[in-house]
């Protein structure tokens, strides 16, 4: 098998670029903690309403301007549907589904994850700016999927 000289250079450069991407991603994920949402906790999907903390969805302060926001996703909404968050707060979203697969995304931020029945998924975001933020479902979940939302007010 014969490789043209230029093709050798091209494939080496291409290979190096791909390795560089992987190194940057790996360092950012494993050394700096920017993992994609991959939470491993379980919950019985038929008993979400009886299981803490999802029996009382909402904001729980856990530190200095740091909060857990426990939420449920269901056809076709989230609990709670309206949330107030203090400006500058660091918020850990913990979300599970009571029925089918849902999405959980806040446009303009990196908050974006799948919410599956039986699992809790988790993502963290710091709200540095005041304003209204939309939580929307970006995984098709049924006939009123496009109505599935919640509203965050940061002030």
């Amino acid at each position: 098998m014969h490789l043209h000289k230029y093709e050798k250079i091209w494939l080496s450069l291409g290979g190096l670029a791909l390795i560089a991407f992987l190194v940057v991603l790996g360092v950012n994920a494993f050394a700096m903690g920017s993992h994609p949402p991959s939470h491993m906790a379980y919950v019985d999907p038929t008993k979400v309403d009886q299981t803490a903390p999802f029996d009382k969805p909402g904001l729980v302060q856990i530190g200095d301007n740091e909060y857990d926001l426990n939420m449920t996703a269901f056809v076709f909404g989230y609990g709670p549907a309206q949330i107030e968050i203090p400006k500058g707060a660091k918020v850990h979203f913990n979300v599970t589904s009571k029925d089918v697969a849902h999405g959980f995304s806040i446009p303009g931020t990196n908050v974006n994850m799948m919410v599956l029945p039986g699992h809790v998924n988790s993502v963290t975001h710091t709200f540095d700016q005041a304003g209204e933020f939309l939580i929307l479902c970006n995984e098709y979940c049924g006939v009123a999927h496009h109505m599935m939302m919640s509203n965050i007010v940061v002030k």
Partner: peptide
């Protein structure tokens, strides 16, 4: 990549 229940190492 955005699913729960799969560890981030396996995703990588």
């Amino acid at each position: 990549l955005m699913d729960p229940g799969i560890s981030s190492a396996w995703k990588y």
